[in-house]
């Protein structure tokens, strides 16, 4: 990152984090909580985008990594009396392990087979959580609030903890995609056969990025469990795998800012429409169709194509 674009890119990313940090002093209580939630979910989308946007692998089962993080943290705190930070670390470790194990065989397939396999295993993970409902409390879920340090109830602590997790993953993803490794990923996205021909071990690269992506999703899940003190099977359901896809496509796949923007936009769109209809699945389904038909680049993808070609 020398000179021109590098400095601008760095300024843009740090600027976003600074703006999010400053926002907590301006916003009212309602948007304050919303933004904390959006940042946790945006972490999930950022992880997802590494795979979809930069490697060209579409996953329909990312909820299993989110849920692995969530349950890894939640169950260890609930049953083993872990503290918040060890719980979080264990959650991320669970998601990393799951992603590595899953990727090891799922990446043997390619194209639509990969999609189907991710969706299938996402659903199997969800069913596994339901099957062991004596431990996981299944659909009903469980609440962590009385087992967590009292400080986590404070909205300011929540906000800044969410910001910390988000900023770490966001900057890591921005750094990663501009690194030589990130360039290999883009090469795989554009033409995997050619990347292999050039001597890159594409299988290992994909496995590494899937593991990182799963780890970030798991960090989001663990943070969600800690900050909003609820763990439930609905976070492992298919819909929760579709959300990051929707957020990423809306904001612009393959841009670092896109997933963040998409998460925020979609959150407020659902929030806004819930005022006059409970049929939020219409919003989700309609948004996916509209994006595919009329707006395939997403917001930041369009901005990059039309206005600012330098943004990563």
């Amino acid at each position: 990152m020398k000179g021109g674009p590098g400095a601008r890119v760095l300024a843009l990313h740090l600027g976003l984090i600074a703006a999010l940090f400053a926002a907590q002093f301006v916003l009212g209580a309602y948007h304050h909580t919303n933004l904390a939630r959006i940042m946790v979910l945006a972490t999930y989308a950022v992880g997802y985008n590494l795979l979809l946007g930069y490697t060209g692998l579409m996953s329909l089962g990312h909820a299993m990594f989110f849920a692995a993080g969530m349950y890894g943290a939640g169950l260890s705190i609930y049953y083993l009396g872990f503290g918040a930070i060890p719980g979080f670390a264990l959650g991320v470790a669970c998601a990393l392990g799951l992603a590595l194990a899953f990727g090891a065989f799922a990446l043997r397939t390619s194209g639509v087979s990969f999609l189907i396999v991710t969706m299938m295993f996402g659903q199997a993970f969800y069913l596994t959580i339901l099957y062991f409902n004596q431990v996981t409390f299944g659909d009903q879920g469980f609440i962590l609030s009385d087992r967590l340090p009292a400080a986590l109830v404070d909205p300011d602590v929540k906000y800044n903890a969410a910001l910390l997790v988000f900023a770490a993953c966001f900057l890591a993803s921005a750094f990663l995609v501009r690194s030589p490794f990130g360039r290999i990923l883009v090469a795989i996205r554009e033409n995997e056969a050619r990347a292999r021909l050039l001597g890159y071990d594409t299988y290992t690269c994909k496995l590494v990025v899937l593991t990182l992506s799963g780890g970030m999703s798991g960090a989001a899940g663990a943070a969600y469990a800690l900050l909003f003190s609820y763990v439930g099977a609905s976070f492992a359901a298919i819909l929760n795998s579709i959300y990051p896809l929707l957020w990423t496509l809306l904001g612009g796949a393959g841009t670092t800012l896109g997933p963040v923007l998409g998460t925020g936009l979609m959150f407020y769109l659902v929030d806004f429409t819930s005022g006059w209809t409970s049929a939020y699945l219409f919003v989700v389904g309609g948004a996916l169709l509209v994006l595919v038909l009329f707006f395939p680049l997403g917001v930041m993808g369009t901005v990059r194509a039309k206005l600012a070609p330098w943004i990563p």
């Binding site: 579409m58 579709i242 496509l249 699945l281 389904g285 309609g286 996916l288 169709l289």
Partner: peptide, 19 residues
């Protein structure tokens, strides 16, 4: 297009479920 079709049919899935 394979991936666009998948995204579009996921959209259709939720529209039909909600309908």
């Amino acid at each position: 297009h394979p991936e666009s079709t998948i995204v579009a049919t996921i959209g259709l899935l939720y529209l039909l479920q909600q309908a």
